[in-house]
């Protein structure tokens, strides 16, 4: 399923909404999640999962082609942990 298919499903269920409003609603939800993580916040959606930010320490990396050492700075990366309900559903429980 891709974004446009998700929008279509929501639009089908809500015939009173314009398609462009459904697109805005879907975008707002995903943008809000990204904005929260950009602030360092955690997003917890019970039953679905939780998005959080993990810190990766600075390290000395290596260019695999040349073998040259490069300094990699500390950075923060997005992380998703599946919720219990969804995990159980994936396994047919």
């Amino acid at each position: 399923m891709i974004r446009s298919e998700l929008v279509q499903k929501i639009a089908d269920e809500n015939p009173h909404l314009y398609q462009r409003d459904v697109e805005r609603i879907v975008s707002t939800i995903f943008d809000e999640i990204i904005d929260a993580m950009a602030r360092g916040d955690r997003v917890e959606l019970r039953g679905f999962g939780a998005f959080s930010v993990k810190k990766r320490d600075a390290r000395t990396g290596r260019n695999p082609r040349t073998g040259e050492s490069v300094q990699v700075e500390e950075k923060h990366v997005p992380f998703f942990k599946t919720g219990k309900l969804l995990r159980d559903r994936l396994n047919g429980k």
Binding site: D21, R24, I25, T28, I29, E32, I33, A36, R39, G40, D41, R42, V43, E44, L45, R46, V53
Partner: peptide, 22 residues
């Protein structure tokens, strides 16, 4: 880092503000 937890309620509040549905 502020370390707040965003929930479904915050997401629906954002939709409410952005689109003006109930």
């Amino acid at each position: 880092m502020s370390e707040k937890t965003v929930t479904r309620m915050d997401l629906s509040e954002a939709v409410f503000r952005e689109v003006g549905l109930s």
